[in-house]
Amino acid sequence: MNIYAIRVIYKYEMLRFRNTLMQSFASPVISTALYFVVFGSAIGSRIETINGVSYGTFIVPGLMMLTLLTQSISNASFGIFFPKFTGTIYEVMSAPISFFEILIGYVGAAATKSMIIGLVILGTAGFFVPLNIAHPVWMMGFLILTCISFSLFGFIIGLWATNFEKLQLIPMLVITPLVFLGGSFYTIDMLPPAWQTVTLFNPVVYLISGFRWSFFEVSDVSVALSLFMVLVFLILCLVVVWWMFKTGYRLKR
């Protein structure tokens, strides 16, 4: 295994994160703080508890997921798209490095950044609402798996995109609606019966449900199913990336 290559890619990507520290942290932290002000205090104070959890506290896992998903996708997609755009990708493609090592470098760095931001948001949430995490290990497990899976998904988008517009297309048109409709701010049983069935086709529901269970021991679907769905998504993304590297899709001419 080319450890040095993984290390330099990872370090390079993390350095990019450090150079844009303000925008990397400021944007998600300010957005989350605003969500707490609007949903937690202004609206949340008028909403009853959900499954015995105050509304402000209830939305914490959903808000974290919202940020984790968007940050993972944006970090990973930009990380691989930018060298493609500038042409510096030639160096990676001509180096003695396997697709798996490239993945560990780029996706590992993107997932690390998302995790850091996720934890910062958790800390920010602690300033607004009382937090008690029932299963911290499971919480970290879901956090790590989600960051890796969606960083992989972002990596696929970065490989697929041929311009900046395409880079933004899927996160804006697909991911954001899925997260908002995935139970970030409500439980599925609050929806009309027909929509409860429809929403089960939304993969984000399983992520948020499992993540929320690790906080409050309440979930929309079983934890095992949540975990299974995250792993299926992870494997699916790995297969797609493997195929992209094998065929050289959008990488090699």
């Binding site: 450890i3 290559a5 390079y12 990019r16 490095i97």
Partner: peptide, 19 residues
């Protein structure tokens, strides 16, 4: 070439890439 890396950093990156 990248934009924000220094000359030394980019050479270190290349050497690492090649293991």
């Amino acid at each position: 070439l990248g934009s924000f890396d220094t000359v030394t950093e980019t050479l270190c990156f290349s050497r690492g890439l090649f293991g």
